[in-house]
Computed example of a mutant assay.
Amino acid sequence: MLPSTSTHRASPGHLHIQKWRGRVGLALVASLSVLAGMTDAIGFMASGDFVSFMSGNTTRLAVAISDGDSGLTIRLILLVATFIVGNALGVVVSRLGGRRALPLLLSIAALLCLAAWPFDTQLPALLAAIVAMGMLNAAVEEVNGLPVGLTYVTGALSRFGRGLGRWVLGERRSGWRVQMVPWSGMLVGAILGAVLEHHLGLRAMLVSGLFAGVLGLLTLKIPRRWQLGYMPR
């Protein structure tokens, strides 16, 4: 069960609901992380650029600047800026959709299907996928008070490592273990994405889009009040 600061006052019924809310939330996080990992692997293998891992693109940007490569510098600045715009759009779509996951995930699905379109150049497809991954971060922000990331796992690994350190020192809080959920999901998704890209190339984005749409439909089974707790305010 995921920890909460108020569980010691809660009734057994409330604790049971909280446990299931946490389990469903983590299942959603795992699924969305698979989507992020799949999409990032497809985009990276097809174009050489990350579509969700902006830390990597930022490091590449610094190297491009130091090398005086103006073309790559401009391209990477565009990618990072597009990701920021995607995050902003995710919050807007989430709010306009009544903080329900379905409108957000259907928008993401449409963008990923667009990214599979055979454009004359890869850049439009890449930008569509990056906007989608930025928007994805608005789908789940926390589960039972624990912060989670969907399109990046450095924070998850950091929180896991710090929790492990506290556990070694004798603290027995267990929430830090759930940080392996988004990391594992992204790893599995990236493996799937790599396999798909080998066979389909950038058209594999269509699989990501269909997966996002299916996840959106599945969220209809999640109670409304739980979704309100998962998504950013």
Rank of each mutant, 00 (worst) to 15 (best):
V91I: 14
V91T: 12
V93N: 03
R95V: 09
L96W: 13
G97I: 04
G97C: 02
G97R: 00
G98F: 01
G98Y: 06
R100N: 07
A101G: 06
L102G: 01
P103M: 06
P103E: 02
L104P: 01
L104I: 00
L104V: 01
L106G: 13
L106T: 08
L106E: 15
I108E: 12
A109M: 06
A109D: 00
A109W: 00
A110D: 07
A110N: 06
L111T: 11
L111C: 04
L112K: 04
L114P: 07
A115Y: 04
A115W: 12
A116S: 15
A116P: 11
A116V: 03
P118V: 00
F119D: 08
Q122V: 14
Q122E: 15
L123C: 08
P124G: 14
P124C: 07
A125K: 04
L126C: 10
L126K: 11
L127Y: 11
A128L: 08
I130N: 13
I130Y: 03
M133V: 10
G134H: 04
G134M: 08
G134A: 08
L136V: 07
L136K: 02
N137G: 09
V140C: 01
V140D: 02
E141G: 14
E141D: 14
V143R: 05
N144A: 15
G145S: 07
G145T: 11
L146F: 05
P147S: 02
V148M: 00
T151L: 05
T151C: 04
Y152H: 13
T154D: 07
T154R: 00
T154L: 09
G155C: 05
A156L: 00
L157R: 00
S158Y: 09
R159I: 05
F160Q: 09
R162I: 11
G163Y: 01
G163P: 00
G163N: 07
L164R: 02
G165E: 09
V168Q: 14
L169A: 13
G170P: 06
E171Q: 13
E171L: 05
E171S: 10
E171R: 13
R173F: 10
S174V: 14
G175Q: 05
W176V: 03
W176Y: 14
R177T: 13
R177L: 15
V178P: 02
Q179S: 06
Q179D: 01
M180N: 10
M180Y: 02
M180T: 08
V181S: 02
P182H: 02
G185M: 04
M186A: 13
M186E: 11
L187H: 09
V188Q: 09
G189Y: 06
G189C: 01
A190E: 00
I191D: 12
I191R: 11
L192I: 04
A194R: 08
A194H: 03
A194M: 12
A194W: 03
L196V: 01
E197I: 02
H198F: 14
H198K: 12
H198Y: 13
H198C: 13
L200C: 11
L200R: 06
G201I: 00
G201W: 04
A204C: 05
M205F: 15
L206S: 15
V207K: 05
V207H: 09
S208Q: 10
S208E: 09
G209T: 06
G209N: 07
L210N: 11
F211S: 07
F211T: 08
